[in-house]
């Protein structure tokens, strides 16, 4: 499939991709509760991540000509885009390291967590990515009000995710005995792994929310009507946070057997 630059079809492409992602998430959950194939879960996560990276984060935009006027806005945006992706590569090593830690310490087990809540926050984050994509497409099409509305929805959903993880999920977990210091030789340091992974991700969600707020406030002043790269940057970062959760969600909620 080729990426299309047509205004309408960009928006409808966003919808198609969202439907695929939603179906895959459903499939993921179904696999996890029925025949528990780790390989299939990994494949689904990889496909989901690839969809987001290509269609929502439009990684192909990195592939631009190095020639051109070095002082033009386009060329500078290209440099900024490269810088942002380099940062994301760097950051993914943190999450990769956490994943390695999780596999090493917990293996094919996962903490006993509220599955419905997990699916709920995951869906919220996924839907927020959809609206972020719409917002970004709209500002590129010159629709400032549409961009502001969609960014605001993204912000609210992101905020809900943060509340869901930090103030609901963490509370429930702690209440059921999964505190940060929990761990024993048979089960592994479950509390540490759970809070470190969700906490590091939540920290990135928080920074993403700050970027969204900045972009929204400045967008109201009309700052991005012509020069819209900052919106793209905030969006790509937001989608990156979503990609991380695409891997962390199965790693913490779905893979393997429950530690009791």
């Amino acid at each position: 499939m080729t990426h299309t630059e047509d205004k309408k079809s960009m928006l409808s492409q966003g919808i198609y991709i969202f439907v695929y992602l939603a179906l895959l998430t459903g499939l993921e959950f179904f696999v996890a509760v029925t025949f528990k194939s780790v390989v299939l879960l990994v494949v689904v996560a990889l496909v989901k991540a690839a969809l987001v990276v290509y269609y929502y984060m439009h990684v192909y935009k990195l592939n631009v000509d190095g020639e051109g006027d070095h002082d033009s806005y386009e060329y500078k945006s290209g440099t900024n885009r490269l810088g942002l992706w380099l940062f994301l590569i760097s950051d993914s090593f943190v999450f990769g390291g956490l994943m390695v830690m999780r596999i090493n310490l917990l293996g094919l087990t996962h903490p006993n967590l509220n599955q419905l809540l997990g699916l709920g926050v995951t869906s919220v984050l996924l839907v927020s990515s959809f609206f972020m994509n719409r917002g970004e497409t709209m500002i590129k099409n010159g629709d400032r009000q549409g961009f502001l509305n969609n960014t605001l929805i993204t912000f609210v959903l992101g905020f809900l995710f943060l509340i869901g993880v930090v103030f609901v999920e963490w509370r429930i977990a702690a209440h059921e005995g999964l505190v940060a210091s929990f761990g024993d030789p048979a089960k592994g340091p479950v509390g540490g792994v759970f809070y470190m992974m969700t906490g590091m991700h939540a920290f990135h969600v928080l920074t993403g929310l700050i970027f969204l707020a900045i972009v929204w406030l400045n967008g109201r002043k009309g700052l991005y009507d012509q020069k819209s790269y900052p919106v793209e940057a905030a969006a790509v970062y937001w989608h990156f946070v979503d990609v991380v959760w695409i891997f962390f969600y199965p790693a913490l909620y779905l893979i393997g057997t429950v530690i009791v």
């Binding site: 590569i89 760097s90 950051d91 090593f93 943190v94 390291g97 956490l98 830690m101 310490l105 940060a180 210091s181 929990f182 761990g183 024993d184 030789p185 048979a186 089960k187 592994g188 340091p189 479950v190 509390g191 540490g192 792994v193 809070y195 470190m196």
Partner: peptide, 30 residues
Amino acid sequence: TATQLIGLSFQLVMFQRLFGMGFFDPTKGG
């Protein structure tokens, strides 16, 4: 890329000390 890993490993020990997380503590399965 790799610098993130020393940051992470040191951060994990810091959190282990601060919150009693058991990453590298065999008595907690670390």
